[in-house]
């Protein structure tokens, strides 16, 4: 019966969790904050560059 495996699987996952938690290192929420800030900066810069390019193209075409 599959239910018979419950204890075995619980034990295996318990050992796995204990073992994995001792080796997993968190980079911290500071890393998340800086990564998101970097992406926002990158996005803003990209938008500004595109607007400037469009303005330049418009100026060259019609100016």
């Amino acid at each position: 019966m599959p239910e018979d495996y419950d204890e075995l699987i619980h034990g295996a996952f318990g050992d796995f969790t204990d073992d994995a938690e001792s080796t997993i290192t968190s980079r911290g929420s500071g890393d998340v904050r800086s990564k998101v800030a970097r992406r926002r900066r990158y996005r803003t810069t990209t938008v500004i560059v595109i607007i400037l390019l469009l303005a330049l193209v418009g100026f060259l075409a019609f100016g």
Binding site: F13, F16, T17, A20, E21, T23, I24, T25, R27, S29, D31, V32, R33, K35, V36, R39
Partner: peptide, 25 residues
């Protein structure tokens, strides 16, 4: 730990969870 168990790759799991938190933030 959950993602690690699913993928079998600890570093990959750490990267993915960090990315999920980035999207949440």
């Amino acid at each position: 730990v959950q993602i690690y168990a699913y993928l079998g790759d600890q570093h990959e799991a750490q990267d993915l969870v960090q990315e999920a938190f980035c999207r949440a933030f």
